[in-house]
């Protein structure tokens, strides 16, 4: 069931929040750095096609939650750096609360003992 494509739908909102939180923690970062950090944070339990991150970045950019500018990467190449906007910060607060609540609810459900 976890391999089901419905999971992707659910993941979409999840990935967006992960990107936002990572940017909040790291400050300006390029796509590669973000993908790497998300994998690390999840204890490599989330294995991304790293390209997926660009769909999320595009989406967040369009919603005005992050902005992007060209800069230089560690290896001296040109890279696009993403940074949180004020709106993005506000969004994180809200989404975090929502997720916490949902997680709490889910937990209660998952703890339900089977009847009979």
């Amino acid at each position: 069931m976890l391999e089901d494509t419905t999971r992707l739908d659910l993941l979409q909102g999840t990935l967006d929040l992960m990107v936002l939180r990572t940017l909040l923690a790291l400050g300006p970062q390029h796509g590669y750095g973000l993908a790497r950090r998300i994998e690390q944070t999840s204890g490599d339990r989330i294995l991304l096609n790293q390209g997926t991150i660009y769909a999320a970045l595009l989406r967040l950019q369009q919603r005005g939650l992050i902005s992007a500018a060209w800069g230089k990467s560690e290896n001296g190449r040109r890279a696009k750096y993403y940074v949180l906007t004020a709106r993005g910060r506000k969004r994180i607060e809200r989404e975090t609360a929502v997720w916490n609540r949902l997680a709490a609810v889910m937990e209660r459900f998952l703890k339900l003992a089977p009847e009979n």
């Binding site: 390029h30 796509g31 590669y32 993908a35 790293q50 390209g51 660009y54 990467s73 290896n75 190449r77 040109r78 890279a79 696009k80």
Partner: peptide, 16 residues
């Protein structure tokens, strides 16, 4: 063009 460039940079970092 910019998107391609961004992906190329990503790829280069991965290969590294």
């Amino acid at each position: 063009r910019e998107f391609d460039e961004e992906l190329e940079a990503h790829l280069a970092l991965l290969i590294e």
